[in-house]
Design a binder for these strands. Sequence first.
RNA 1: GCCGGCGUAGCUCAGGUAGUUAGAGCACAUCAUUCAUAAAGAUGAGGUCCCAAGUGCAAAUCUUGGCGUCGGCACCA
Length: 481
Amino acid sequence: MAKPFYITTTLPYVNSVAHAGHALEYVQADILARYHALIGDEVFFNTGTDEHGVKIYRKALEEKKDPQAYVDEYAEKFKLVVQKLNLYPDVHFIRTTDPHHKAAAQEFWRRCIAAGDIYKKNYEVKYCVGCELEKTDSELQNGRCPLHPNLDIEIIKEENYFFRFSKYQVPLLDLYARRPDLVVPDYRFNEIRAFVAAGLEDFSISRQKTKMPWGIPVPDDPDQVQYVWFDALINYISTLGWPEENEKFEKFWGIIDSPKALQVAGKDQIRQQSAMWQAMLISANLPSTRQIVIHGFITSGGQKMSKSTGNVIDPMTIIDEYGTDALRLFLARHIHPFEDSDFTMEKFKESYNADLANGLGNLAARILTLAEANLEKPVEHPAPIVFPAEYTNALEKYDYNTACDNVWKLIGELDKDLTDKKPFSVVKADPEAGKTMIADMTKRLYTIARLLQPILPTTSDTLKAAIGANKKPANLFPRKE
RNA sequence: GCCGGCGUAGCUCAGGUAGUUAGAGCACAUCAUUCAUAAAGAUGAGGUCCCAAGUGCAAAUCUUGGCGUCGGCACCA
């Protein structure tokens, strides 16, 4: 009986195109999805786009587009990214403007009301006339907008709905105590625990429709829409057909005593994912997330990527030049799973040439040339292997770097054996012995291809097909200068 | 300011409950070679393990202090 495995990324907000950080999160989640599929689990992999809110509304107006037309366009762009990164074919792509998601968000809201956790109150918004934007305290300096220090900040009163977050301090701390691996890595868990322990304030979860209509309507209140991320978080369960498809929901998301869902998110998302969303789930009487894995950010040349610095790495450009698997390997092997990491073209090219052109690509060429020339028929596929413990343990701990290192250790050993045992010489002196060696090494290459499946799916398939046909493929990774 | 992490070869990092000459991958140099993508292989160079004091027979590893650096301390998603 296949074990259900649920995994989701966060949904990118569609006010800009996909960047390297999105690619990292997609690839990390995809490696886990594919790994679990490989070991026989029934996988539900969710991603999609977060499409409501004031920023999108403004951008649509700026571009003189209907908001729906604007988000349709961006959703297509992100779908293309998902495709180009070669994510798991059955990935479920949810959009927060999907009718079913809207209905689910409204139902979720009603459940929170039923729990007594939503109430209306006057909310004071700080507003900078210069920016024409609302400002938070952390954005202000000495009570003034840093961009427009000569203008006074205006206080606008707005009636909004609030979520009774304060009520969930103890329940959240209980949850954290019960589930000591809820958030990975542990220092991120400590951060959120400290944050919750310091006390929680209720937060606003709606906006006035007259000012900002681009959101999901609040049930039974035509004047308010849900604040964007309240609705956005609900995608993790609406994607499963919640609330109608309860069987599917329990199968993948779990039940209260046995949560199953795995979430991957960036370090800027800790609070939303591991505190606010978990409180919302408790309020709606639904199971919590089983585990939230927090990754770091990608920097370039030690700095945040920005157009003005000119250090932006565009994942799509890299794919066009080097191929999807080259990008996937760099993200998996050379970007730290949890800490911020540097991504420069120099480092990328170095790793491409070392790991792929000189490493895997060259090894495949060596072996398959010998196999094609000397074996009469393709080798029989080795029986499904037991994966090396170092490899599986690393993936269970989200240590993609070490999982890759483990495969590359096998590549190195096979390469060295080929050099030392010289089947290319042996086959001339003693054809049968040489052929046996070549067949054996071809099988080892097949095993490596299987281990590569979650990380480099296309390369894995190409290698397996080549071995199956006993035909050397074209250069997998041409060396780049 | 408060809390926490980190500081080890050119680069990215591992080790670190103290115990032989400090490790890996990449990069670099030399040699050799062809089954292969001028690739792979062998050999080698490269480190006062941030600084100082302390506790030990013994400290990169423990303690204290200092310096440096990074992260968190709510409504930007």
